[in-house]
């Protein structure tokens, strides 16, 4: 299994989407698609995320390839109705979107793909989302985590309005605010400054962050 994961990482590192898909298909032919995500792809994505974060071995292009390979696999699983947990996403629902006045969609889309691969029920609101809409939608679908993306300092500051909406509606703690985007990488402390409950080093770290925030939300509600 480790060999397959390593081979998959190498294909992604080379930007070889077709080769990565062929490896996964060959494994699925013998073992089925049911466990492919959890046993092969997710561990490989974890390694890529850690390397991208720690040694910058991976580029945006390679992580984009990883996202496309993930999308390809999710597509096959859905087509074959091989979704774990009886066809329903196992986790969530959660919301993601780019904050008002931000139009840099690529990072958000990759976050959505990687979250779905980890079983989250992801609702993507797209670009240029007003603060109130984030919270309206979160209440409507009972999302415990809102993930808000911004690329630049000025648009990141607009995330404060989401914080205010959450607090003004008495939802502090119940709805957790995840923040991310390029600017958070270069400005340590910005996540706290805009009122975020947490951030991840990159798109591949979003799953772990959402798990933690989801637990925090439940803890707030149950008092544990």
């Amino acid at each position: 299994m480790m060999d397959l994961q390593q081979a998959l990482i190498e294909r992604i590192h080379l930007g070889d989407r077709g080769g990565a898909n062929a490896l996964l298909d060959a494994w699925a032919l013998e073992s089925g698609y049911e466990h492919l995500l959890a046993e092969v792809l997710e561990p490989a994505l974890l390694v890529i995320g850690e390397e991208w974060n720690s040694s910058e071995t991976f580029t945006l292009a390679q992580v984009y390839v990883a996202a496309k390979v993930t999308e390809d696999l999710l597509g096959k699983i859905v087509a074959l109705r091989k979704i774990p947990s009886g066809g329903q996403p196992a986790k969530g629902p959660v919301l993601i979107g780019n904050i008002e006045e931000d139009f840099h969609a690529l990072g958000r889309k990759m976050v959505g793909t990687f979250l779905r691969a980890e079983g989250w029920d992801v609702h993507d609101l797209g670009n240029d989302v007003p603060a109130a809409l984030f919270v309206d939608k979160a209440q409507e679908i009972s999302a415990r985590v809102i993930g808000v993306s911004a690329m630049m300092m000025t648009t990141a500051c607009n995330i404060k309005r989401v914080r205010e909406e959450i607090d003004q509606r008495g939802l502090t703690g119940r709805i957790q605010l995840a923040v991310g985007g390029a600017v958070f990488h270069v400005c340590p402390g910005l996540a706290e400054e805009v009122g975020g409950d947490g951030t991840a080093a990159n798109a591949l770290g979003a799953g772990g962050l959402f798990e933690r925030l989801w637990e925090q939300s439940i803890g707030k509600e149950t008092g544990k």
Partner: peptide
């Protein structure tokens, strides 16, 4: 065409 489309074009 957007960064995503262009990156995909260059890669694939």
């Amino acid at each position: 065409m957007g960064l995503e489309n262009w990156l995909g074009t260059v890669l694939f």
